[in-house]
Nucleic acid binder design. Structure first.
Lengths: 235, 235
DNA sequence: GAAAGTATAATTGTATACATTATGGCAATT
DNA sequence: AATTGCCATAATGTATACAATTATACTTTC
């Protein structure tokens, strides 16, 4: 059987399959980044041609990127009337938080189970927490936000649920934007590090009730930070 | 202020804004339908040009539809190597079920809260259940599956969480495919009707613990039905 | 003077054409 | 005999061109 034969072929270890990032992907990231950095404001109209020109590419990959973003809820697209960046009002944030809590619990439980099966499974999480610790001194806000997302992405990955991870792709983009839009209030870097370290410990402990509570508390902060800016909005 | 003036303009009530379904959307639906009906098998390679030809359109809208399906996890796309329909193995089904339970709980709680605020909120759910009742006699398997999905879509809509509803769009497509692929074992139509009616009653009752349990039981059936076929798979 | 009609510009939607990349077969080389 | 290099083919990725739709400004009409 050819299949069996194929599995016997020695596969080079230690090399990850490289995959070139396509223009649509890059375009989607660029748009999200633009929103997160404030270059494009929530609710603002987005014109394909202008985006394409700014990115130095044609409209086609831009459109594909926008379609994906629409599926993930970061832009709304009305037929023949174009795209508009989603608004991130207080209600939307609460909804996002609810969804995230529900799924993050699942992820944490999955990661917890994976750890019980194989204590090495949470290695990536420790790595991220380690990087966080190194960042506490020099307070790089952007880098810390990235590590925050990276930690949770790792958590959802360790859980080993493909569908879950796919939903995280959408959710994390929302969070990325929210992190970007959040007020400049200095975040408590030591606190962020401590929180994630603690969450990781609880995951490895595997007490379900404690896990649920930890997750709930961990995510609540999100809404907090953003609330100030939102109340400033006149409209 | 122009804004205030605008809000005073009487808006015609009772008419839904009509939006033409775009070719990419139709293409995506067509592909999902083709998988659900068995015309395209899970894991099978999908060539854009052939799809376009079959649908009588060009490749561009097909590509956009495929990108959305990829974001929703129904196809996997490898750069320069094309698309492949996802496989729905037992593990994937379990993962899907876990995610669905977690989110469906959230939806049910939201719907329950909406009902407490306004008893009219669950009206659409009663409608669907009514249609189910009418279908019990003449056992139209396809129609019943549609009502099943329609019920849950209504549930998630009533919950009033946009993000949640967006995720449902992805999940429901998976379920649609699974329903289609499921073995021809006659489903218990009366049972399906009864289950949904009961779920609705529990939602309106609003007992959280009972709700969680009900959801869990309600969704477990999914894996069940498919398990047989999956075990037949040789590979 | 407000509503409806009309022409024009801007933008999106789709199709076609071209460029790039992967795949499979076959010869050449070691 | 196995690996490498090369070529032909097929499919994807991207750009450009055109068609269809919407928005805007202006005119017309009652």
């Amino acid at each position: 059987m050819a299949i069996i034969e194929a599995t016997l072929v020695p596969v080079q270890e230690g090399v990850a399959p490289l995959r070139p990032r396509s223009l649509p992907d890059q375009a989607a990231d660029a748009i999200v980044q633009a929103v997160a950095s404030g270059a494009i404001r929530p609710g603002e109209r987005v014109v394909e041609q202008k985006l394409a020109a700014a990115l130095g590419i044609s409209r086609v990959p831009v459109r594909e990127g926008l379609r994906v973003l629409a599926a993930q809820g970061l832009v709304t697209v009305t037929p023949h009337r174009g795209c508009r960046v989603a608004e991130f009002d207080e209600q939307g944030l609460r909804q996002l938080k609810d969804v995230r809590v529900a799924l993050e619990r699942l992820a944490a439980r999955g990661a917890s189970a994976a750890y019980r099966t194989n204590p090495q499974a949470t290695r990536p999480l420790h790595d991220v927490v380690g990087q966080m610790a190194a960042l506490v001194e020099r307070g790089d806000r952007f880098a810390m936000s990235r590590l925050d997302l990276q930690f949770h992405r790792a958590l959802w990955t360790v859980a080993g649920n493909d569908m879950l991870l796919r939903l995280w792709e959408a959710i994390s983009r929302h969070i990325l934007v929210i992190f970007g839009l959040e007020t400049e209030t200095e975040r408590d870097f030591a606190g962020i590090y401590r929180q994630h370290a603690h969450l990781l410990a609880v995951v490895e402990a595997g007490e379900l009730a404690a896990l649920d509570e930890e997750i709930e508390g961990h995510i609540k902060q999100l809404r907090h930070m953003y609330a100030d800016q939102d109340s400033q909005k006149t409209r």
